[in-house]
């Protein structure tokens, strides 16, 4: 932009070009900067989904907070779910700033969640019936989250990149907490090992699904490609899934656990993992609110929102003293 020419006098095309030049130069976009409407909408979609997933993600682990099998584990899982809730809050604040010019608030986010318009991550629709599941969630689901979030640490949107920096630092502790649960069980009694293997079997397909389908073809959705263009993200879903395999498959095997996919192997020629793909129609069903726990967990949120309506009203009212 030429110095002295007001930015507002530029045409839409010039503004767009200026915007693209900035993100291509690695500059960060801030909430009050000009941004294309499409970029704003992509960010709102991504960040509100991420934020609400953190919040819904506390629910499967909530079951295991009181049941955690020692004082040490109780304290650790309490710290973890508290972090997740904190991440949700941080991300919703980022989303709220982006939504403000559209006249929308957190209330809209919650309403969209309840109506099913705002989706949350596939993994948080699933059952977590044993302590083994609590371990697998913390180790592998959080491990997968670290991989997908780390790629956005350099996101073109400044507030998101900064929030992720803190989130990723905490997620590392979560994965370590998970690994420690897993190690204790893997080295424990035959019942504990079986509980762990069963949990891995339950979670494997969800972990494949975690990163999303390979390309736009499977879902008819090109949000990932668009986000790469906007430098919100830098890698494809498949890149991330392969990274996850490379990091975790050797660790899973070294614990003597079996991955419930007998075709899985590393192909030296292509330097890629060959694996059995997930059932993506099932994925669509799950994230549309038809997973085994989708409605139960939404019900917890809906119910508390309704039960606490009087509290929100009381907080909004003028103080009498």
């Amino acid at each position: 932009m030429t110095v002295g020419v007001s930015f507002n006098q530029l045409s839409e095309e010039e503004k767009m070009q200026h915007f693209l030049d900035r993100i291509n130069a690695g500059e960060k976009i801030e909430p009050d900067d000009w941004m294309p409407e499409d970029y704003r909408l992509q960010l709102i979609r991504l960040i509100s989904m991420h934020g609400i997933s953190e919040i819904m993600g506390a629910l499967p682990e909530k079951e295991w907070v009181p049941k955690a099998p020692s004082l040490h584990r109780k304290l650790a899982i309490m710290a973890k779910v508290q972090d997740e809730m904190g991440h949700g809050q941080l991300l919703l604040r980022v989303a709220e700033d982006l939504m403000a010019p559209l006249g929308k608030t957190r209330h809209d986010i919650m309403e969209d969640l309840f109506s099913g318009k705002l989706k949350f991550h596939n993994v948080f629709h699933m059952d977590a019936p044993t302590w083994g599941d609590a371990g697998i969630i913390a180790w592998l689901v959080d491990g997968a989250a670290i991989i997908s979030q780390s790629m956005m640490l350099d996101s073109s949107y400044g507030p998101y990149a900064r929030a992720l920096k803190r989130i990723c630092a905490e997620e590392v502790f979560h994965a370590q907490h998970g690994e420690s649960i897993i190690l204790a069980m893997a080295e424990g009694s035959p019942e504990q090992r079986q509980m762990l293997q069963d949990a891995l079997n339950r979670w494997w397909e969800s972990l494949i699904m975690f990163f999303g389908p390979k390309s736009a073809k499977e879902t008819g959705n090109s949000n990932a490609d668009k986000n790469i263009m906007y430098k919100i993200r830098t890698k494809t879903n498949e890149d991330l899934r392969q990274e996850f395999f490379t990091k975790y498959i050797p660790r899973i095997w070294s614990l003597g656990l079996t991955i419930p996919d007998d075709t899985i192997r590393f192909d030296e020629e292509t330097q890629m993992w060959i694996y059995k793909d997930a059932d993506w129609s099932k994925f669509k069903q799950i994230v549309s609110g038809n997973g085994p726990q989708s409605q139960n967990r939404l019900d917890l949120r809906r119910r508390s929102y309704k039960n606490n309506e009087w509290v929100r009203e009381a907080l909004a009212a003028k103080k009498a003293i």
Binding site: V65, L71, M78, V81, G88, Q89, L300, R303
Partner: peptide, 25 residues
């Protein structure tokens, strides 16, 4: 800890779960 995810707003969920964790400590 039973209140987790059910508090009147998300900020309270964060604060209350932190208090519960302290008390367990």
């Amino acid at each position: 800890s039973e209140w987790l995810g059910l508090a009147p707003h998300i900020e309270e969920d964060v604060a209350f779960s932190s208090i519960s964790q302290d008390m367990m400590g």
